[in-house]
Design a protein around this nucleic acid. Structure first.
Lengths: 399, 399
DNA sequence: CCGGTTTAGTTTGCCGGATGAATTTATCCC
DNA sequence: GGGATAAATTCATCCGGCAAACTAAACCGG
């Protein structure tokens, strides 16, 4: 007899799962709601019976994932509703980031409040991974201790890196701008913080923060212009991960295949990366983005031409993305967020010209609004999502 | 009071849905299995209790969606298992296609057998949509009548078109190579066949057939080289639809942004479309692909160069796709399937060179194997999927 | 101040459906 | 013919969502 290969059993419905699933529905309904909903509103909006919701909410309150607010005085007749909101300071997701110019931590609770944050600015190019990870651990460990001392449960930790991270097996594959390659980041950090972190691409996590900042399950392509150019695809508020978490590598799109001997000479990163722009603008490679912005402010012709050329490449690359994954909005973050006013028109023009569905569904180009160090926020949110996706399962692991 | 906006209630679990959902799990378990499974195997592989599966299977047999096969003589002790297989000739999906050179119908049952098929070859460029749809209806109507007379229930119909179709609202937006624009295809065909067809992009449906032919939920980027160049992204056996069903427009990827006055002069379709290849090979634009193949067979230098150039553009475009959506396999269909031996090496080389994750997860380039007119097959499968996704719901609509 | 009205939340009995154990069925093997 | 073995069915149980009844807490009008 052929051994009955166990297929993915996630699709089957069991009653044991039913309650777990609805617990998640209730929790997300409360966390994602624009206004604190009452039990009755929740029942109506999710299509569950009031009795069912009451039981679920009781469970969530007992688990300190949800709290009841004071009934607000309403002018209507009837018993006043008890508004429900995510609990504050009871669970934290911890986002960490190592990037070319800095490293840091940020802890966020279910209500979205920042509970702790530390950033160290430093040039980390070509620093030893081991050294850097020790520094990071030294930054993170006290945060974790302090949170736990305050009764905060740690939902998890997540590290953002500017490189290719294998979602399935964990190790960092390559981070060109850090000079890292095949580093077992998960193992190292686990040893140092006794927490197994998720590790993910910086742009993917930044896009997650961006999606969160925009509420309501938006869909967009996110471009993160740092030293390299990363990106991510967001669909209905969810990061599109691909098989290994290697999706969204927009910087490696080739927009000029016949430019140099190697096809990669025509990649977006080669044409519109920070180094390329500075060089084309006639600035020294050690210059920072501010220098370019200053030059643009005084209408320096070389700077203007450099940015125009980069914007054209960016617009063409993003048009390809839109044609392939059918997203209707493009969000420019990092460098391109700062250069937004200088690139917007060209990017929008290329999208209008090249995206086949533009006549029926015009594309929108907007700047990122997730604030500073979005990848740290996104990492914290990713860690918290463990709780939000299946609170019942998470509570069992905590007990 | 703010009206409680009804959110997407699909996530909540109710017991009424539980049985429906598991009925689908059981049916798909039988249809997708490589070998006809017994009730006991099904229970083991899906993680359901044997009692549960028995009940579900009884229901499916009664609904004529599943049949019991003769127990095969096995040499083991114990009561022999009753193998279960999809029923034959009880339900049909009907796929239709209008393309530049032909139009046709194909009806397929749950077992994957072709129950009926008709194709008419003709040059349909610039033909009136109304005329063509009448011809199609004249081809389809007798098929539907005949099937129904034989007791076959029609799960649905689906039409493949070489253009941009709005998944949400229905009408064809634009089919450049047919010369159609903003045609209400659904309404017209509904009036003619009294069936509301799904309408979808030809490449997306062809990719669906390709995924079906490869069993086991493969992930790949599909390229359909017809007169234009279409494509689709397949993830875990599912077509990636995008918001409107407009994803996978690989032909509109720009690989040479600085080639001509318009950026679209450097699109893949402009560089590697059938017309472009024929022109570059020095063949008249009225020539067909066979002429190019003949020229290649005798090592004609212009033909060889033309195909090499096209293959380079194709490889570069597909590398961008792989970088953005993290797929590990590329399937070449249509023209590129016929040219497979002449383009494979160049495409594979560009992927190896440009896809950032290639060193850790090498890319595979393979020819399509879904047979002739894959979009017709894909359309039939798409129609059948209504039954497979939620058999209980479908049975209710039939009653 | 009190009864009526309205809305929120809880209690209660019911019911559908998954489940595991026990039972029946059908085969092989000695 | 009597185990042994495996498949399929039967049956009592249990879990959890549900509708309806009920309680709670507000407003309002007299």
């Amino acid at each position: 007899m052929p051994t009955p290969e166990p297929r993915d059993p996630s699709r089957v419905a069991r009653q044991a799962q039913m309650r777990d699933q609805n617990l998640g529905v209730a929790l997300r309904g409360i966390v994602d709601a624009p206004e604190p909903p009452s039990r009755a509103q929740l029942a109506a909006s999710e299509g569950l019976a009031r009795a069912t919701v009451s039981g679920l909410v009781d469970h969530l309150i007992e688990a300190r994932l949800v709290r009841e607010l004071e009934p607000t005085p309403t002018l209507r007749a009837g018993r006043p509703a008890v508004p429900l909101a995510p609990a504050r300071g009871t669970v934290a997701g911890v986002g960490m980031e190592v990037n070319v110019d800095y490293l840091g931590v940020r802890a966020i609770d279910l209500a979205g409040d920042v509970l702790a944050e530390h950033v160290e600015l430093d040039d980390l190019r070509d620093a030893e991974p081991e050294t850097v990870l020790h520094r990071l651990a030294a930054l993170v460990a006290p945060v974790l201790d302090e949170l736990r001392a305050g009764g905060v449960r740690i939902a998890g930790t997540a590290l953002a890196l500017p490189g290719l991270v294998d979602r399935v097996t964990g190790p960092l594959r390559i981070a060109p701008n850090l000079g890292w390659r095949d580093v077992d980041v998960v193992g190292a950090l686990f040893a140092l913080t006794s927490f197994p972190p998720r590790v993910a691409n910086e742009a993917n996590l930044a896009a997650r923060a961006e999606a969160h900042a925009r509420r309501g399950s938006p869909s967009f392509a996110y471009v993160s212009g740092e030293v390299g150019i990363g990106g991510a695809i967001v669909l209905d508020g969810e990061i599109f991960p691909g098989r290994h978490g290697w999706s969204g590598e927009i910087g490696h799109i080739v927009v000029d295949a016949f430019r140099g001997p190697r096809a990669s000479d025509g990649s977006l990163e080669a044409l519109a990366g920070q180094d390329a722009m500075l060089r084309a603008a006639g600035l020294p490679p050690t210059a920072r983005l501010d220098a370019l912005l200053d030059a643009l402010a005084v209408d320096d012709p070389r700077a203007t031409a450099a940015v125009a050329q980069a914007a054209r490449a960016l617009g063409v690359a993003l048009a390809s993305v839109a044609n392939v994954v059918d997203v209707g909005e493009v969000v420019l973050g990092g460098t391109f967020g700062q250069l937004f006013d200088h690139v917007h028109d060209e990017v929008a023009a290329r999208l209008d010209e090249l995206v086949i569905f533009a006549p029926w569904s015009p594309l929108v180009v907007s700047p990122a609004r997730a604030g500073q160090y979005p990848a740290m926020t996104g990492g914290a949110l990713a860690a918290l999502s463990t709780v939000l996706v299946d609170p019942a399962e998470w509570l069992r692991t905590q007990a």
